[in-house]
Nucleic acid binder design. Sequence first.
DNA 1: GCGTGTGAACTGGTTCACAGCG
DNA 2: CGCTGTGAACCAGTTCACACGC
Lengths: 203, 203
Amino acid sequence: MIPTPTANRLAHLIAVLDRLALSGESKISSAKLADLTGFTAHTIRKDINCLGSPGENGSGYEIEALATFLRKGLNIAQPINTIIVGLGRLGQSLLAYRNFEKQGIKIVAGFDSSLNKIEQLSFPIALHPSYEIEEVAKATKAELGIIAVPSESGQKVADRMVAGGIKGILNFTPTFLKVPGCVNVRNFYVAEELLTLAALVRV
Amino acid sequence: MIPTPTANRLAHLIAVLDRLALSGESKISSAKLADLTGFTAHTIRKDINCLGSPGENGSGYEIEALATFLRKGLNIAQPINTIIVGLGRLGQSLLAYRNFEKQGIKIVAGFDSSLNKIEQLSFPIALHPSYEIEEVAKATKAELGIIAVPSESGQKVADRMVAGGIKGILNFTPTFLKVPGCVNVRNFYVAEELLTLAALVRV
DNA sequence: GCGTGTGAACTGGTTCACAGCG
DNA sequence: CGCTGTGAACCAGTTCACACGC
């Protein structure tokens, strides 16, 4: 089993490696990666070795090889279908964010409770009313869901996602979602993050 | 010194307590709070006691008293001035999010590199061009900063914030920011969070 | 000799168990 | 007797130190 913080850091590493690959470099050391990510070189090596050894020893990692090695190790070499619910400003900004695709996050459908909004918006993916979440999630074999609705409806959306077979939820709603243990939730409590920062800053 | 995860949870607790206060209840037990937050009752009590004892023993916490106790303990009873840089979709959705104010997060200024955008937008706070970050941050005594710009400019914005005396940064840019150790950074790597979820889900 | 791989020590955060108060 | 407060046990994750391969 791979520790959550490790998965987190490895995901970040992959993103960094992808950027590096574009810049023409071909090899990189854990020390350089440390500089680019803010993690220590120790931690990086250990994280990587959670998935086994990429092979080469002695002189740094082959950038592209490492990226694909990590993707395979994390089982994210294949794109992962994702739906997003809530097409307010936040939802729209996420939909417009073209970086997901590059990372293998394929957003396959958007949902909103307002039929008007669905008709007005034009995005290169299918938009549906919220009551179709379960159905569409199943049909598209979506594995992840993003919740960007007002907090009152967060739980209801989560329930529908779970019913539709969603296995991981990114929650922007400032409320704790009750879901079965087999469903992974990561919360983005933006306001609370700021409060946390405030507390840390005002020692 | 208060552990970061504890500060995090306490911030969430405060938000939950505020909501509870509106609902008319007056007392609550750690077990009930556990149910509402997803933390264990143990953890909640321990977190609270990091700041000392709220007083009453035996039969639950007084909701409002606890909230103010926590705010005082975390030093966030006074509102904290915050600036936001990057007024794209994400930045705008954050500006429009009226929950911050309630939590004592006072957004005092917005910035964008595009003068056009600044003139077009209308928000109830002052908008400035990005080169004024340092100056305005100082003038408004801002303590926190939100970075919602494209990733290329993240570091530059961070530098300006630091120069302006900002002590805590919420970073939505998918790059690691280099800042002095006395500045606290919390990263919201949205795409990477999804990747992490994908990895955790595809065991 | 630089840089990776890995087992062993350490640390800080969480969980537990029980004492103490209403 | 329920629920909080807290010191002690535990554990995961991080840091360290050294062995190994190039």
